[in-house]
Protein backbone atom coordinates (compact mmCIF):
# COMPACT_ATOMS: atom_id res chain seq x y z
CA UNK A 1 0.00 0.00 0.00
CA UNK A 2 1.25 3.47 -0.82
CA UNK A 3 1.84 5.60 2.25
CA UNK A 4 2.72 8.64 0.20
CA UNK A 5 1.32 9.40 -3.23
CA UNK A 6 2.40 12.40 -5.23
CA UNK A 7 0.63 13.16 -8.51
CA UNK A 8 1.60 15.69 -11.19
CA UNK A 9 3.40 17.84 -8.65
CA UNK A 10 4.63 21.15 -10.03
CA UNK A 11 6.04 24.26 -8.44
CA UNK A 12 7.30 27.43 -10.04
CA UNK A 13 9.54 30.02 -8.44
CA UNK A 14 9.02 32.94 -10.77
CA UNK A 15 10.23 31.70 -14.13
CA UNK A 16 11.92 28.61 -12.73
CA UNK A 17 9.99 25.37 -12.71
CA UNK A 18 11.79 23.68 -9.82
CA UNK A 19 9.59 20.59 -9.83
CA UNK A 20 7.76 19.68 -12.99
CA UNK A 21 4.88 17.25 -13.16
CA UNK A 22 6.36 14.69 -10.80
CA UNK A 23 4.37 11.57 -9.94
CA UNK A 24 5.72 9.12 -7.42
CA UNK A 25 4.66 6.89 -4.56
CA UNK A 26 6.27 5.43 -1.47
CA UNK A 27 5.06 2.05 -0.27
CA UNK A 28 4.54 1.04 3.34
CA UNK A 29 7.66 -0.24 5.08
CA UNK A 30 9.98 0.46 2.15
CA UNK A 31 13.13 2.53 1.90
CA UNK A 32 12.73 4.64 -1.19
CA UNK A 33 15.51 6.79 -2.60
CA UNK A 34 15.28 10.06 -4.47
CA UNK A 35 18.44 10.94 -6.34
CA UNK A 36 19.51 13.53 -8.82
CA UNK A 37 22.18 16.11 -9.52
CA UNK A 38 22.50 19.43 -7.68
CA UNK A 39 19.52 21.69 -8.05
CA UNK A 40 17.36 18.91 -9.47
CA UNK A 41 14.52 19.80 -7.09
CA UNK A 42 14.86 17.01 -4.53
CA UNK A 43 14.73 19.19 -1.43
CA UNK A 44 11.91 21.15 -3.02
CA UNK A 45 9.86 17.95 -3.21
CA UNK A 46 10.40 17.44 0.54
CA UNK A 47 9.43 21.03 1.16
CA UNK A 48 6.25 20.51 -0.83
CA UNK A 49 5.35 17.32 1.00
CA UNK A 50 5.97 18.86 4.42
CA UNK A 51 3.96 22.00 3.73
CA UNK A 52 6.84 24.47 3.54
CA UNK A 53 5.77 25.37 0.00
CA UNK A 54 2.39 25.15 -1.66
CA UNK A 55 2.45 23.41 -5.03
CA UNK A 56 1.51 25.35 -8.13
CA UNK A 57 -0.24 22.23 -9.31
CA UNK A 58 -0.61 18.62 -8.30
CA UNK A 59 -1.66 16.44 -5.40
CA UNK A 60 0.02 15.00 -2.36
CA UNK A 61 -1.71 12.25 -0.43
CA UNK A 62 -0.54 10.68 2.79
CA UNK A 63 -2.51 7.56 3.67
CA UNK A 64 -5.33 8.81 1.48
CA UNK A 65 -5.34 12.27 3.02
CA UNK A 66 -4.39 15.36 1.05
CA UNK A 67 -1.46 17.30 2.49
CA UNK A 68 -1.80 20.25 0.13
CA UNK A 69 -2.41 23.46 2.03
CA UNK A 70 -1.36 22.05 5.40
CA UNK A 71 1.17 23.86 7.55
CA UNK A 72 4.49 22.15 8.34
CA UNK A 73 3.52 21.49 11.95
CA UNK A 74 0.26 19.87 10.87
CA UNK A 75 2.03 17.58 8.45
CA UNK A 76 4.49 16.62 11.18
CA UNK A 77 1.73 15.87 13.63
CA UNK A 78 0.16 13.50 11.12
CA UNK A 79 3.33 11.43 11.29
CA UNK A 80 5.33 12.72 8.31
CA UNK A 81 8.56 13.97 9.82
CA UNK A 82 11.69 15.18 8.10
CA UNK A 83 15.32 16.04 8.66
CA UNK A 84 17.16 18.86 6.93
CA UNK A 85 19.98 18.93 4.43
CA UNK A 86 21.80 21.48 6.61
CA UNK A 87 21.04 19.93 10.01
CA UNK A 88 18.68 22.11 12.05
CA UNK A 89 18.97 21.22 15.71
CA UNK A 90 17.98 23.26 18.74
CA UNK A 91 21.61 24.28 18.96
CA UNK A 92 21.83 25.59 22.51
CA UNK A 93 19.90 22.74 24.06
CA UNK A 94 21.31 19.43 25.20
CA UNK A 95 20.88 16.19 23.33
CA UNK A 96 18.23 15.11 25.82
CA UNK A 97 16.38 18.42 25.64
CA UNK A 98 16.31 18.25 21.84
CA UNK A 99 14.59 14.88 21.95
CA UNK A 100 12.35 15.74 24.88
CA UNK A 101 11.16 18.92 23.21
CA UNK A 102 10.22 17.02 20.08
CA UNK A 103 8.31 14.47 22.17
CA UNK A 104 5.78 17.17 23.12
CA UNK A 105 3.06 15.56 21.09
CA UNK A 106 2.94 12.63 23.49
CA UNK A 107 2.17 15.07 26.30
CA UNK A 108 -1.57 15.46 25.97
CA UNK A 109 -2.18 18.01 28.67
CA UNK A 110 -3.48 21.55 28.64
CA UNK A 111 -1.97 24.90 29.49
CA UNK A 112 -3.57 24.75 32.95
CA UNK A 113 -1.97 21.36 33.59
CA UNK A 114 1.35 22.90 32.60
CA UNK A 115 0.87 25.91 34.87
CA UNK A 116 -0.23 23.94 37.94
CA UNK A 117 1.70 20.70 37.39
CA UNK A 118 -1.41 18.64 37.91
CA UNK A 119 -1.33 14.83 38.23
CA UNK A 120 -2.12 14.73 34.52
CA UNK A 121 1.01 16.76 33.80
CA UNK A 122 3.15 14.44 35.89
CA UNK A 123 1.71 11.37 34.22
CA UNK A 124 2.42 12.51 30.67
CA UNK A 125 5.78 14.00 31.57
CA UNK A 126 6.94 10.73 33.07
CA UNK A 127 5.79 9.00 29.90
CA UNK A 128 7.65 11.29 27.56
CA UNK A 129 10.79 11.35 29.66
CA UNK A 130 10.83 7.56 29.60
CA UNK A 131 10.26 7.62 25.84
CA UNK A 132 13.06 10.15 25.34
CA UNK A 133 15.44 8.09 27.46
CA UNK A 134 14.60 4.96 25.49
CA UNK A 135 15.18 6.75 22.24
CA UNK A 136 18.58 8.00 23.35
CA UNK A 137 19.51 4.48 24.36
CA UNK A 138 18.28 2.91 21.13
CA UNK A 139 20.15 5.45 19.02
CA UNK A 140 23.26 5.18 21.20
CA UNK A 141 23.11 8.80 22.18
CA UNK A 142 22.79 8.30 25.93
CA UNK A 143 26.48 8.86 26.60
CA UNK A 144 26.05 12.31 25.10
CA UNK A 145 22.72 13.16 26.70
CA UNK A 146 23.97 16.25 28.54
CA UNK A 147 26.07 17.63 25.68
CA UNK A 148 25.00 20.82 23.97
CA UNK A 149 23.83 19.99 20.45
CA UNK A 150 26.10 22.46 18.68
CA UNK A 151 29.17 20.94 20.36
CA UNK A 152 28.59 17.49 18.88
CA UNK A 153 30.61 16.06 16.00
CA UNK A 154 28.86 16.25 12.68
CA UNK A 155 27.90 12.60 12.44
CA UNK A 156 26.37 12.64 15.92
CA UNK A 157 24.41 15.78 15.06
CA UNK A 158 22.90 13.90 12.12
CA UNK A 159 21.99 11.00 14.40
CA UNK A 160 20.47 13.41 16.92
CA UNK A 161 18.38 15.04 14.24
CA UNK A 162 17.03 11.63 13.33
CA UNK A 163 16.42 10.84 17.00
CA UNK A 164 14.53 14.09 17.35
CA UNK A 165 12.38 13.20 14.36
CA UNK A 166 11.71 9.76 15.81
CA UNK A 167 10.57 11.34 19.07
CA UNK A 168 7.32 12.19 17.28
CA UNK A 169 6.70 8.49 16.59
CA UNK A 170 6.44 9.17 12.84
CA UNK A 171 5.30 6.60 10.37
CA UNK A 172 6.94 8.23 7.34
CA UNK A 173 10.44 9.57 7.77
CA UNK A 174 11.91 11.92 5.17
CA UNK A 175 15.70 12.13 5.28
CA UNK A 176 17.39 14.87 3.27
CA UNK A 177 20.92 13.76 2.39
CA UNK A 178 21.68 11.94 5.63
CA UNK A 179 25.11 10.93 4.30
CA UNK A 180 26.23 14.44 3.35
CA UNK A 181 29.71 15.14 4.62
CA UNK A 182 30.38 11.59 5.78
CA UNK A 183 33.38 9.45 4.89
CA UNK A 184 32.93 5.98 3.31
CA UNK A 185 33.16 4.22 6.68
CA UNK A 186 30.50 6.50 8.18
CA UNK A 187 28.37 6.02 5.08
CA UNK A 188 28.40 2.25 5.55
CA UNK A 189 27.40 2.64 9.19
CA UNK A 190 24.63 5.02 8.18
CA UNK A 191 23.23 2.52 5.71
CA UNK A 192 22.87 -0.17 8.34
CA UNK A 193 21.58 2.41 10.81
CA UNK A 194 18.79 3.45 8.44
CA UNK A 195 17.73 -0.15 7.94
CA UNK A 196 17.86 -0.72 11.69
CA UNK A 197 15.58 2.16 12.59
CA UNK A 198 13.18 1.21 9.82
CA UNK A 199 12.79 -2.25 11.36
CA UNK A 200 12.89 -1.08 14.95
CA UNK A 201 10.20 1.59 14.57
CA UNK A 202 8.23 0.10 11.69
CA UNK A 203 8.93 3.11 9.50
CA UNK A 204 8.58 3.92 5.88
CA UNK A 205 11.60 5.91 4.73
CA UNK A 206 11.89 8.29 1.82
CA UNK A 207 15.39 9.62 1.47
CA UNK A 208 17.28 12.02 -0.73
CA UNK A 209 20.80 11.07 -1.57
CA UNK A 210 23.31 12.82 -3.72
CA UNK A 211 25.79 9.94 -3.76
CA UNK A 212 24.72 7.24 -6.18
CA UNK A 213 26.47 4.42 -4.31
CA UNK A 214 24.87 5.16 -0.93
CA UNK A 215 21.45 5.54 -2.51
CA UNK A 216 21.91 2.32 -4.45
CA UNK A 217 22.81 0.24 -1.46
CA UNK A 218 20.18 1.50 0.95
CA UNK A 219 17.14 1.96 -1.29
CA UNK A 220 14.74 -0.74 -2.30
CA UNK A 221 13.20 1.48 -4.92
CA UNK A 222 14.46 4.68 -6.47
CA UNK A 223 13.38 7.77 -8.31
CA UNK A 224 15.76 9.87 -10.35
CA UNK A 225 15.09 13.56 -10.72
CA UNK A 226 16.77 15.86 -13.21
CA UNK A 227 15.98 19.53 -13.80
CA UNK A 228 12.76 19.13 -11.83
CA UNK A 229 11.51 16.22 -13.94
CA UNK A 230 11.34 12.56 -13.16
CA UNK A 231 13.94 10.82 -15.28
CA UNK A 232 13.58 7.23 -14.19
CA UNK A 233 12.22 4.95 -11.50
CA UNK A 234 12.80 1.37 -10.50
CA UNK A 235 14.97 -0.91 -8.43
CA UNK A 236 18.59 0.11 -7.87
CA UNK A 237 19.83 -2.33 -10.49
CA UNK A 238 17.35 -1.03 -13.03
CA UNK A 239 18.45 2.52 -12.29
CA UNK A 240 22.10 1.57 -12.50
CA UNK A 241 21.64 0.39 -16.05
CA UNK A 242 19.36 3.17 -17.22
CA UNK A 243 21.01 5.09 -20.04
CA UNK A 244 19.31 8.39 -19.32
CA UNK A 245 20.46 8.26 -15.70
CA UNK A 246 24.00 7.53 -16.68
CA UNK A 247 23.92 10.42 -19.10
CA UNK A 248 22.50 12.81 -16.53
CA UNK A 249 25.18 11.90 -14.04
CA UNK A 250 27.97 11.76 -16.59
CA UNK A 251 26.80 15.07 -17.93
CA UNK A 252 27.07 16.49 -14.47
CA UNK A 253 30.56 15.14 -14.00
CA UNK A 254 31.64 16.62 -17.28
CA UNK A 255 30.20 19.96 -16.25
CA UNK A 256 31.96 19.68 -12.93
CA UNK A 257 35.21 18.88 -14.67
CA UNK A 258 34.85 21.86 -16.95
CA UNK A 259 33.74 24.17 -14.15
Amino acid sequence: MAVLEVRNLTIRFGGLVAVNNVTLHVDEGKIVGLIGPNGAGKTTIFNLVTGVYNPTRGEIHYRGRSLVGMKPHQVASLGVVRTFQNIRLFKNLTVYENVRTAAHMGAKYSLLDGLFHTPRYHMYESEISEWSENLLRLLKLDARRADIASSLPYGVQRRLEIARALALRPSLLLLDEPAAGMNPQECRELISFIREIRDMFGLTIFLIEHHMDVAMSVSERMYVLNFGELLAEGTPSEIQNDRRVIEAYLGEEERDAQG
Binding site: T50, K71, P72, H73, A76, V81, R82, F84, R88, L89, F90, K91, N92, L93, E97, R100, T101, A102, H104, A107, Y109, L111, D113, G114, L115, H117, Y121, E125, I128, R164, A165, A167, L168
Partner: peptide, 20 residues
Amino acid sequence: SKQGRCFVAVKEDEIAAQSV
Protein backbone atom coordinates in the same frame (compact mmCIF):
# COMPACT_ATOMS: atom_id res chain seq x y z
CA SER B 1 6.27 21.86 30.87
CA LYS B 2 5.82 21.10 27.19
CA GLN B 3 4.59 24.66 26.67
CA GLY B 4 7.84 26.01 28.07
CA ARG B 5 9.92 23.68 25.94
CA CYS B 6 7.96 24.76 22.87
CA PHE B 7 8.65 28.41 23.74
CA VAL B 8 12.36 27.68 23.82
CA ALA B 9 12.14 25.67 20.60
CA VAL B 10 10.60 28.71 18.89
CA LYS B 11 13.51 30.82 20.08
CA GLU B 12 16.09 28.25 19.03
CA ASP B 13 14.90 27.56 15.50
CA GLU B 14 11.41 28.20 14.23
CA ILE B 15 11.71 26.01 11.16
CA ALA B 16 13.05 23.10 13.19
CA ALA B 17 10.27 23.65 15.72
CA GLN B 18 7.62 23.43 13.01
CA SER B 19 9.26 20.33 11.63
CA VAL B 20 8.66 18.56 14.94
